[in-house]
């Protein structure tokens, strides 16, 4: 009798375990804040941004509750693998290097990168000649870090920051000659800011795909294929019924 009880408890435990792994009713999403306008906090401390609104809408569509977990960028993929959260929705570019480690949803937005320098800077274009001896700011572990390191790491100094805020601070302090980050983030934190004047150097950067990939995706652990599928379906629905456009308008409406 006792043995039977143990076995059945074990059975229930295993069943519960697999059930939890298969369908989530509570999804924790890792996000690196601040990265305005993709994810940031309002003056009264509320988490907001394009990723946050779209993520919440996706969760509502799927019928799960979502919890946002803040994590600095350089540890965001290890944090997913360590089960600190179940997904990453934090302006993450889909590329082959990351595909080896995580499973991506369909791309939900494509945003190019751009180089920003103080207005009146002698830098008018970005290449090996103009950047020689300059200091370049990037956020550690981003596609921009990888691109800048591989292409200009030999001729220029690449300074790596944990957060986009620290980087912007050092650009304002004139420690950096130029920074490389997502265009919309640079627009929100540099072009629209009141501290100093900045300009985009060169055009938008979305090539080569080896680095910048195929737009932003939500990252999952490799085995959570079912969860990724549910998010993909929900994304398709939101795009059809207009919710996606509404959120898009909210953040990128003026252009």
């Amino acid at each position: 009798m006792k043995k039977l009880l143990t076995v059945s408890i074990l059975g229930v435990a295993i069943a519960a375990g697999t059930a939890q792994a298969r369908d989530y009713d509570h999804v924790r999403i890792g996000v690196d804040v601040p990265y305005e306008p993709m994810e940031y906090r309002t003056a009264d401390g509320e988490l907001t941004g394009f990723d946050i609104d779209l993520g919440n809408a996706l969760c509502a569509e799927i019928g799960v509750t979502c919890e946002w977990v803040e994590q600095e960028w350089d540890g965001i993929i290890p944090g997913l693998l360590a089960r600190n959260y179940d997904a990453i929705m934090s302006s993450m570019s889909i590329n082959d290097e990351r595909r080896q480690t995580v499973l991506f949803s369909d791309s939900y937005i494509t945003i190019p990168g751009a180089w920003f320098a103080p207005e009146g800077s002698e830098l008018s274009e970005v290449n090996e000649e103009t950047l020689a001896g300059k200091s370049i700011g990037v956020q550690r572990g981003t596609t921009y870090d990888n691109y800048a390191t591989d292409n200009y790491g030999r001729i220029a100094t690449v300074n790596r920051y944990s957060t986009a805020d620290d980087m912007v601070l050092d650009l304002q302090a004139q420690r950096l000659d130029i920074v490389f980050l997502e265009f919309v983030v640079g627009q929100a934190t540099l072009l629209d800011s009141e501290d100093g004047d900045y300009q985009v150097v060169g055009g938008m950067v979305s090539e080569p795909a080896e680095y910048f990939g195929d737009g932003f995706g939500i990252a999952f652990r490799q085995r959570d294929e079912a969860l990724a599928e549910r998010f993909n379906e929900a994304l398709a629905t939101l795009k059809e019924d207009g919710t996606y456009d509404e959120i898009f308008e909210r953040y990128f409406g003026e252009e």
Partner: peptide, 13 residues
């Protein structure tokens, strides 16, 4: 700093 760079680039803590 070097270790953090390698960690962030290869996700290998």
């Amino acid at each position: 700093g070097a270790a953090r760079f390698v960690y962030a680039r290869f996700y290998a803590p």
